[in-house]
Design a protein around this nucleic acid. Structure first.
Length: 205
DNA sequence: CGGAAGATCCACT
DNA sequence: GTGGATCTTCCGA
């Protein structure tokens, strides 16, 4: 078990590509019904803000949905997609920067049984099945839009120091599912832990 | 006010 | 590898 000490506000008040890399190995903790669920982050993606065509804040959009993405480092931005799934983001930078990190995958450290229930899996999960993919990650921790905008520094959903990883363990590549974003689609803003079986889809090198 | 697309997942072939 | 589910959000008219 790595460190359960909360990450401080300063950690998040940086450009989202730096935060995305540094979130690898950290713990995402969910307090649920008196139980603690712990997930070690193994895959993230940075969304830079208004100049990033793949970001929801592209062009400085300020719609109802993305309001929390402007709240400044340390908040959650949770949105629904395809009518079926939720995605959890860690807001970065200063207030108004509109930058965030999408949490794409994690490995269970504590509470795997409960996560399996929340995922409604009848069998023991195969590689990546429990929390590999942004929608699965949210389902495994019972994260939905009610948590949009909450602080990640303390409380029912928070991030802790966990197990920081060395550069040699980090691989990066282009982000998933942003083909519409022109040149930004190729920016290497996806980060993953080398060799993790939970990492979703094409494994970056 | 209507149409279209989406930072996805699952089942099936 | 492909297609369907399913609905919110957003933009243009």
């Amino acid at each position: 078990m790595g460190s359960l000490r909360a990450l401080q506000r300063q950690f998040f008040r940086r450009p989202s590509d730096q935060v995305a890399r540094d979130l690898l190995g950290r713990y995402l903790i969910r307090e649920l019904g008196g139980r603690r669920l712990v997930l070690r982050l193994v895959e993230t993606e940075a969304y830079l803000g208004p100049d990033d065509r793949a970001a929801h804040t592209w062009g400085g959009r300020r719609t109802e949905r993305v309001r929390s993405m402007y709240l400044g480092g340390g908040r959650a931005y949770v949105y629904a997609i395809y009518g079926l799934h939720c995605c959890l983001n860690v807001v970065c930078g200063e207030e108004g920067s509109g930058s965030a990190v999408l949490l794409r995958a994690g490995e269970a450290v504590e509470g795997a049984e409960r996560m399996r229930e929340l995922r409604a899996l009848a069998r023991p999960p195969r590689a990546g099945e429990l929390a590999g993919g942004p929608g699965r990650l949210c389902q495994a921790l019972a994260v939905d839009r009610r948590l949009d905008g909450v602080s990640l520094l303390a409380g029912e959903l928070r991030l802790t120091a966990g197990e920081p990883v060395a550069d040699g363990e980090v691989v990066r590549g282009a982000r998933i599912g942003v083909h519409y974003a022109g040149a930004a689609a190729d920016w290497p803003l996806r980060f993953a832990l080398r060799g993790s079986v939970e990492v979703s889809r094409p494994r970056p090198r």
